[in-house]
Amino acid sequence: MLLWVLLGLLVLLAVGACVFRDLLYVAISLALASAVLAGLLFHYGANIAGVFELSVCAGLITVLFVSTVSMTKDSDQGKETRMGRGFIPLFLLVFIGLDIFIVRWLAGALPEIVPGAGSGSFQDIFWTLRSADILGQVVLILAGVFGISALFRLKAKEKKHE
């Protein structure tokens, strides 16, 4: 039952990320979808994938999106095209259909994962097994922050002059 609730929530949040018109809501919806997906990955015992979905997609990416949105929102966030309202949900439905088809095919075609792979507690995986990746993620956040501030540096300067 929990599984179906999580799956339903995942689809709803993914649809939300496509149809919300406020970019901040889009980023939050995407982050929640990632968090739910991480829950599903933990449910299936794919702990490493779950850890990364949670830390990178729900955490890091959201920080980057929200930073970008907050830096651009009051300047030139133009009205989004109305096409999104009708076309994106339709596209999403087709995509979900294709997705189900591909996952069913993959489930039959892929070999069994080697036993024991990805086992261990969250703490073990995050702090011991994958600690090099934490360093990478920290610098990835720095890259995002400096990248955004570099690309919007003229805008910041213009604002200062005003």
């Binding site: 990478g136 610098v139 890259a143 990248g147």
Partner: peptide, 15 residues
């Protein structure tokens, strides 16, 4: 980790 660090270098290089 190789993939992750490749992404670190790549993101900096795009900007």
């Amino acid at each position: 980790s190789l993939y992750l660090f490749l992404e670190v270098a790549s993101i900096a290089s795009y900007v």
